[in-house]
Write a protein that binds this DNA or RNA. Structure first.
Lengths: 234, 234
DNA sequence: TGCTAATATTTGGTCAACCAATTAATTGGT
DNA sequence: ACCAATTAATTGGTTGACCAAATATTAGCA
């Protein structure tokens, strides 16, 4: 009987002061009160505000800095690192602050990022990159021929290409944009009919150009591929 | 000639006390003197042995704990957690890679975003947009001729162009990337000499193309402008 | 001798005070 | 009125001392 009580109480998690501070700072960022490039209040102010020792504040900042969310400049201040914001979960929509009719912006930006990713990927791809891309393409093809929903495999294929660019910032930006794209398409039930078949052919074409390291053709084929996609919602 | 020295010296990485301790602990583990499950000497002993303050030792332990290499038990001791040892091997190189080529990615991505922004801005600009851009350009020119630091006005000019694209996602991404760009340039004291003069001329050229709504030329002139900028740090 | 309980020591955790670098404010001179 | 140099305030960095929990040691008894 006593065991039951124990198992119930087990779920209680002690929240250390550090965790509390981290949560609060994260909320400040995700709510938009702290934007990219903004300066954090000084450690002393924060410690006073939270009613805890400065050590806790420092530890919290260190941890967030480790995640890449904050950047500390000695004797100057601590600022919010823009690219690190990506690490925050569920924050994406807040960052982009999408308002319904902005979907065109979203797609347009994706096209922009991806066409150039194809260009860079064709330029810098290693054999490992190529193998990863082909693997993702195979998974996508498998989903298509089975008639299964292939949206996830499709996105994975595209992300693999971005990965091959060796551009971490480009990768990060794609990670920001991708979830919103995905949520829209799943919500609007696009991606039906015989679209995946033609898309598959285009995927093969893109991979071929990347394999041959023909950057311009890779870019062009990616643009062609995404233009098809762009005509659907519009 | 001086350039050669610079490129040689660039590779020097300042090793903070924390990094030194991390390296030493790493060596202790990889040499087998510290096996999984072993207890680390107390923080006081370590600080005395390394000849540094206990804070450094604590920070180093925290960092290693973050990687999953160590596990601290309050009021008891710190033990080596066997699982994360693989991660420890590439730890330092990972950190260096992140800090090293990230800037290239940053600049490359900025060029990408901005050149296409110029394109879209030329296509969609309203008269109000044009006025705003010219206003920002005037402010920039004023700063340049006064010899004042013109970095902020420069960025404002670029942001105004992005604004004219009417693409909110593009705008958001630029806002994410911009602070990191800015912090780098202010830190490395670039943007000196007669650079602003030529930059000013290029700005005028960009505005001219945007005014004439010549998208391709606007894009080309923006690329030319940013390529100059890209050649500085590299 | 063997075991328990009281005690001393060691442990990581926490705090307040101080340091040097940076930034803001003030002053003094032109 | 403006600008330079000096001073004051603020910042993150660092240190040593102190705290409670955990452990090792010792004292005391059967």
């Amino acid at each position: 009987m006593k065991e039951d009580f124990l198992t119930n109480f087990r779920e209680i998690v002690i929240e250390t002061p550090v965790d509390i501070i981290i949560r609060q700072i994260r909320e400040l960022i995700s709510s938009g009160q702290l934007k990219a490039g903004d300066r954090l209040p000084s450690e002393r102010i924060l410690s006073e505000r939270f009613g805890v020792g400065r050590t806790y504040v420092r530890d919290a900042i260190r941890k967030l800095e480790f995640y890449g969310i904050l950047k500390t400049h000695p004797q100057s201040g601590t600022v919010v690192s823009g690219l690190g914001i990506i690490a925050l979960e569920g924050l994406i929509t807040d960052v982009l602050q999408l308002n319904g009719n902005d979907f065109n912006s979203l797609v347009e930006t994706r096209v922009l990022l991806e066409t150039n990713s194809a260009y860079f990927a064709a330029t810098r791809r290693t054999d490992d990159d190529l193998m990863g891309i082909k693997k993702a393409l195979a998974a996508y093809e498998l989903a298509v021929v089975d008639g299964r929903p292939s949206m996830e495999e499709d996105l994975m294929f595209h992300l693999k290409i971005v990965e091959a660019t060796k551009n971490s910032v480009l990768m990060s930006l794609m990670m920001i944009v991708t979830p919103d794209i995905l949520s829209f398409f799943t919500k609007n039930k696009v991606c039906s009919g015989d679209k995946p078949i033609s898309a598959l052919r285009e995927h093969y074409e893109i991979v071929e150009h990347i394999e041959n390291q023909d950057a311009d053709k890779a870019k062009a084929s990616m643009r062609n591929h995404l233009d098809d996609l762009l005509n659907v919602p519009n």
